[in-house]
Write a protein that binds this DNA or RNA. Structure first.
Lengths: 230, 230
DNA sequence: ACTTTTATTTCGCCG
DNA sequence: CGGCGAAGTAAAAGT
């Protein structure tokens, strides 16, 4: 992360973007942030997302047209052009920031929790493999055996399960059926389901298991506490 | 859009987020933008995405701890806390911005182009309905008939088609099969496909038709040119 | 208000 | 480097 200056232009401008799509924005007062890594953001007075932007590594040119500043940020396939219609204010900040950003309770954390405590899925569940590549279909979160020794595919979601999630899991079931000649059970573990997902599940024998990121965090903390004794 | 002030704090701070997940960020110099709609952004010196944020409508409190400013931005389930470790610089910008943001060549535009010139899908294609609701499955982009009078489901994508897209289209085929007792043809029109999507298509009789947003834009321009004569 | 879909998604991982 | 799935996705559109 290290350090770098951030330049802010504040003033009235028009914005044109040509690239993956095309956009036009008429005259209005905005903030333009340009960072040392040559990422650029155009912010309107509302909305937490920039109206236009260009990711890091763009080529940034500062031009003048009719005595007013113009910023061109371009890469191989995209062009962002910001034309000021009056002299903008200009500020420069030198920022030093070497801190590490840490995030917890991701879907990855949910998987760690299930591997640490498989009964989160159901009593007697035994994980065999994680992230198994299923032929021509994709990757399964966890593959394991249930208490009766039957193959189980587990899909983890940190948000309410959608019909999409159910279809994806069904596709895994079909592929594994082809591969092993036996239909595995399918368990979708998520904090909840949407109604449409429920309907999709009724059609496809996918089972639902309620599992929240919060519960997984608890398990991980307990597991970590145990680790410190080993 | 109208107008509103934007407040920028610049200075060293720590950031804590608790909500859908949990994050921690140690001391470093950052920019904090607060807009009139009470959206809030924390920007590090690099990266075009904010490291932490809170969407519009958050409750924002300005506090003081040990003589230094603390910003708390919270909503029902989430809390963002920014604690400065030295006096930050403070700037306020009053921005007036009423311009309309216009974006072209979206998936919607692709649909308009196909309706204006159905042969983009294939010669003899005749659209019947757009955005048809399919029972318990979702909405189909375009439903029509091919040159031989067979039912055709068309799905449009402005980006390379994924296995996800193929599965979704297959689900439509199944639903329409149940509904009409006849299996429709399925055409996925996109600028390209991923390899995995190709494999998925081989399994499911979904056909691919190359169609780029750029070509659609041309057609729309032509159609617009025609319109001006009518 | 809730669900579903889209996105110039961005980001990270893995082949 | 491309493909693929996740994201505190966010925001828009439909129900």
């Amino acid at each position: 992360m290290a350090k770098g200056s951030v330049i802010i232009f504040a003033g009235p401008c028009t914005v044109v973007y040509e690239g993956r799509a095309t956009s036009r924005l008429g005259v209005g007062e905005r903030l333009v942030l340009i960072k040392k890594d040559r990422s650029i953001l155009v912010h309107r007075p509302t909305g937490h997302e920039p109206v236009n932007w260009q990711p890091a590594g763009s080529m940034i040119d500062f031009l003048t047209e009719n005595g007013l500043p113009v910023i061109r940020a371009s890469n191989a396939n995209e062009l962002l052009k910001i034309s000021f219609t009056a002299q903008p204010s200009l500020m420069v900040f030198d920022l030093r920031d070497t801190a590490e950003f840490e995030m917890y309770a991701s879907e990855e954390d949910m998987k760690k929790a299930v591997l640490a405590k498989p009964s989160l899925v159901e009593p007697g569940f035994k994980p065999l493999e994680e992230e198994r590549q299923v032929k021509r279909t994709g990757r399964v979160d966890i593959l394991g055996l249930d208490a009766l020794g039957r193959l189980v595919v587990v899909e983890l979601k940190r948000k309410p399960a959608t019909p999409e999630d159910v279809r994806q899991l069904s596709a895994y079931v079909e592929s594994l059926n082809s591969e092993f000649g036996r239909k595995p059970r399918a368990i979708l573990a998520a904090p909840s389901t949407t109604k449409a997902a429920r309907r999709e599940m009724e059609k496809t024998s996918v089972e639902f298991r309620c599992l929240t990121p919060r519960r997984c965090m608890q398990v991980l903390r307990e597991a970590k506490g145990l680790d410190s004794y080993l």
